[in-house]
Design a protein around this nucleic acid. Sequence first.
RNA 1: GCGCUUGUAGCUCAAUCGGAUAGAGCAUCGGCCUUCUAAGCCGAGGGUUGCAGGUUCGAGUCCUGCCAGGCGCGCCA
Length: 584
Amino acid sequence: MKELIANLIHTALDSLKAAGTLPVELDVQAQVDATRDKTHGDFASNIAMVLSKQARRNPRELAQAIIAALPADAAITKVEIAGPGFINFFVSSASTAEVIPSIIAAGSAFGLSQLGKGEKVQVEFVSANPTGPLHVGHGRGAAYGATLSNLMAAVGYDIQREYYVNDAGRQMNILAASVWLRYLELCGEEFTFPSNGYKGDYIRDYAAELLQRVEQAYRHPATTVFDGVPADEPAGGDKEIHIDALIDKARDLLGEDAYEVVFQLGLTRILDDIRDDLGEFGVTFNEWFSERSLTENVERAIQTLIDNGHIYEQEGALWFRSTTFGDDKDRVVKRDNGQTTYFASDIAYLQNKFERGFDRVIYVWGADHHGYIPRMKAACEALGFDPERIQIRLVQFAILYRGGERVQMSTRSGSFVTLRELRDEVGNDAARFFYVSRKAEQHMDFDLDLAKSESKDNPVYYIQYAHARICTLLQKVAAEETAFDQARGLNNLSLLEQEAEKDLMQKLARYPEALENAAVNGDPHILAHYLRELAGDFHTYYNAHRMLLEDVNLRDARLVLSQAVRQVVANGLSLLGVSAPESM
RNA sequence: GCGCUUGUAGCUCAAUCGGAUAGAGCAUCGGCCUUCUAAGCCGAGGGUUGCAGGUUCGAGUCCUGCCAGGCGCGCCA
């Protein structure tokens, strides 16, 4: 409909140009928007105001001229000038109703488009360090990334979902050491567990598994293990130095092979757990990409930067001159001790992504990482790629509230709420919906009581309830003497003359647009809000008018409208990863 | 200190590339169940869009300054 109106306007402009009313060189894309206010018709264009300066005529006068030149069309019943020079279009109810047969015909495919033209886009998200269970902060990134991927796939992008497994860093060695130390405790050794080790109960589980598998083979006396290890922080030392020394000890005493067994056990168990957790949350990946697999790529990436002239040496280290591309300061990629930095891995990973043929790569990061954007963009450009091909979406943490009180979380005491706990408490549907119901880069307050409540206050239930109500209706009518006949409904759409019916049809017609906006802007909340509004319109309609009437023509027309609503609600919820129950 | 970011109704949030009288929900108050699910509906009140300038036909939206909150500024990962 928008396109139709835009075409009509362009035709009018062309004829005005031909008549000499407008300069021929004028070239503007007509903007047509759905109106917010019904008294402004169904669609409005600001074309007259935009052109008024170039055309040297006042907007209302110009609007009048455009309207006069507008070709007639059966779909448009009335055109008006309003306000400072808006042209308002009123659409015939017959043409408004056309959305219903198209929804029924398209079914679950309604709203899909080819906007993305098959562009290959990778979305990398979550990518939490595999050192423990996911917490609620990761949950928002997971929900956002998964939904963004769904939305983009729905509008025609070729999406690849990826999790970057940080299995190469120091944190992983701390994890391995923690597992081994817990194992030693189970063997009967006595010592003080390092303050910087991982203290979660899951570590004890892995240790128990290790004990079962290797029995006493990896046991060493605590005195040997702690011999020569600098004091821990509570004992007046440095916790970082302490844990690093213990890691070295573990490697020494176990040897690389056994150390690797411990390391892999911890890594594998945690990844399995994360995979299960996310799977239950409806979040899946095409690829779990290991940082360790990148080792050769890192040297090659650095070489690429050297070849491109963006690396210099200073004080024994290799520096990437990222300031060339607008970063605050230059960054080290290889330390004076020969080790490459984490950032160097990121550069290698980026190069690897483009080598795999992605046209565009999207990173979903916690908002606390925003300081890394300039250097990643710089790296992209220095590698020789257009920096527009990487996009970084920031997701803010959610603050949980229970009983009106903020739920305290601190990583230090290990008292963070896990994603699994959240899912157990409020359910997957509520968690998925709540996470994406706010703009991603916005702080959000997550009200646990609201997410659990079974009332209209809870937008998830509100939307699902609309779906369930319609399913129940359709079930009920199946028991009537005269069965529901979809074709009869479609043939009698002209009977839908109520205001609420027109509102509903117009809302339905806007679904593809809401979906596209949400996908292109990376704003799933647009779809969430749309569904809330659609459900609201349906509840209003349902309360104001009866469906199961004697007059089967009207009855089936209303039911087919309801069916269309049900379909769109189901399609939208599915993209959000929320179920659409048939009864509640 | 420098940089990024946010500031909209009592609360949580919207506002389609800069468009018309800034909208929902919650909370408050008042109505609606012998009829398809009241997990619902209808109505009322509630605003100097942090403050001050600027850009223009038009600014919550863009620019500048200030105020307030959040985050980031390692040869850490």
